[in-house]
Nucleic acid binder design. Sequence first.
DNA 1: TCAGATAAAATCGCGC
DNA 2: GCGCGATTTTATCTGA
Lengths: 80, 80, 80, 80
Amino acid sequence: MSTNSVDAGHLRAFLERIERLEEEKRAIADDIKEVYAEAKGTGYDVKIMRKIVSIRRMDADKRREEEEILEIYLAALGEA
Amino acid sequence: MSTNSVDAGHLRAFLERIERLEEEKRAIADDIKEVYAEAKGTGYDVKIMRKIVSIRRMDADKRREEEEILEIYLAALGEA
Amino acid sequence: MSTNSVDAGHLRAFLERIERLEEEKRAIADDIKEVYAEAKGTGYDVKIMRKIVSIRRMDADKRREEEEILEIYLAALGEA
Amino acid sequence: MSTNSVDAGHLRAFLERIERLEEEKRAIADDIKEVYAEAKGTGYDVKIMRKIVSIRRMDADKRREEEEILEIYLAALGEA
DNA sequence: TCAGATAAAATCGCGC
DNA sequence: GCGCGATTTTATCTGA
């Protein structure tokens, strides 16, 4: 078997892994849309919900950042 | 329990479902990145890989579209 | 003449170009709507027409993508 | 020549008109992007420019609305 | 830093 | 006429 065919087989495997993962990603994105639609059907305002989710995500990111900084400080103290 | 607290609980449940799904989505996106990185490490050209994936996705989309138009045609015939 | 006024004049010129182009774009969008309306009046199914247009656009896009990937391949070969 | 073939020819003509118009629309959209890119290269903030364009568009719409209302009033007066 | 991909918001057209 | 789904446009985000 030539090097090329081995490479091609390898490449194909990579592509298939990627495509399977992209499909899963799309499925989850659809699930998210469905939840928003369901919430809308229950009377909630989707736009506001998205804002809440976005703010909470920023909060979570901020918390992570702060924890990282704290760890850096603690590490610096440990070395001091 | 007041209507408000019930509604709030409901909203909270929706938000938590969404946030869990978004986290899963992010995890999968990371997986995809890892696969590309691994392929790159094996010597493949990421740009070319992305193009291939994109073209194959267009094929799939087109097939879907064609199935949809077939359904629309059939529905139109049914109404005729 | 101050830098500010020059800049402002420049900005104004950009904005006017954009607005003129947007108006042209809107006019064309209206024309498209009119054609669909006319076709509908002649008895054609707009939904099906839109699907056909969409599928043909995908064909064109795919052709473009394929040309692009060919160029990328050739460029990659040139660098090899 | 059957009715069907005439219809098909007609349909084809509609589709071609639409596709030609869509291409023009796309070309203009590209022009707009280029203007923004050029403005960006001159140091302007694209996001702010978009906001300005959007606000001016709203103003223009508002003016149009007000003129329409004025005309309706005037017409009502003429009939009174 | 920049373009290109992705996600979000706005808009439009259709059916009820 | 109005909500709903589909398309289009805008904004954000990522990776080269």
